[in-house]
């Protein structure tokens, strides 16, 4: 048998060879000084490496580990989740559900733009300051009667006095609402303009 290379001798030193190969290699090494020296060198290296002694764990190793296990163990939510086999699908399922929801919401047709509805109070519900019961009606002319009658006048003019049209006027047309507002202003102005004279009458 020819001389062995260092790789083969290393394999021999570390019992990496088959039984047959090892027998033949041992027989060669017994006769070959050079191969024997290399093999002994590997064996010496192995012995030197063995001088590095293991390190002992510190005495508080177990205490620290048990504390960590107590936090991470059965009581912890991670431990419970780990115990539940199905829980591993929880997060992906939640993500998929959120995506589906988002797609559904985004695909819904947006409603047509609504005209800006101004808050109007039906004329019948408007509070008209009633004259004090003690005040005499005479001298005030027909002012309260005018206030009570005036609101219906424009609507009747536009909608020919029908209740349906009156309803429509208050919820749809912007122009009509403006007309109503204008009328309100006028109506309020009438009320305000009436007040001083009324106060004067009370004072008198």
């Amino acid at each position: 048998m020819n001389c062995m290379d260092r790789g083969q001798l290393f394999s021999l030193a570390h019992h990496m060879l088959d039984a047959g190969e090892e027998t033949a290699a041992r027989a060669h090494v017994a006769e070959c000084t050079r191969c024997r020296q290399v093999l002994e060198e590997f064996e010496r290296l192995d012995a030197v490496l063995g001088e590095w002694k293991p390190v002992e764990p510190s005495p508080w190793f177990d205490v620290r580990l048990r504390a960590a296990l107590a936090v991470e163990g059965e009581g912890g939510w991670r431990g419970k989740l780990a115990a539940m086999q199905w829980a591993r699908w929880l997060v992906p399922a939640a993500v998929v559900a959120a995506l589906v929801f988002a797609v559904v919401v985004m695909r819904q047709p947006s409603p047509p733009p609504q005209p800006v509805a101004r808050q109007t109070t039906p004329r019948s519900q408007r509070i008209v300051p009633a004259p004090p019961a003690s005040q005499p009606e005479a001298g005030r002319g027909s002012a309260p009667a005018t206030l009570a009658q005036k609101p219906s006048a424009p609507i009747e003019g536009i909608g020919a006095g029908s209740a349906a049209l009156r309803e429509k006027d208050e919820t749809t047309g912007e122009d009509d609402l403006k007309a109503l507002e204008d009328y309100d202003m006028l109506a309020n102005f009438d009320v305000l303009s009436e007040l001083p004279s009324r106060e004067k009458r009370v004072a008198n």
Partner: peptide, 25 residues
């Protein structure tokens, strides 16, 4: 032997046992 630092070595050994415990199921 791998990381040279004794304190780190103990931390890592503890981490192994924690992982073994967590993965027991």
């Amino acid at each position: 032997r791998m990381v040279r630092d004794q304190a780190l070595a103990e931390d890592l050994a503890q981490e192994v046992f924690l992982r073994v415990y967590q993965a027991r199921h």
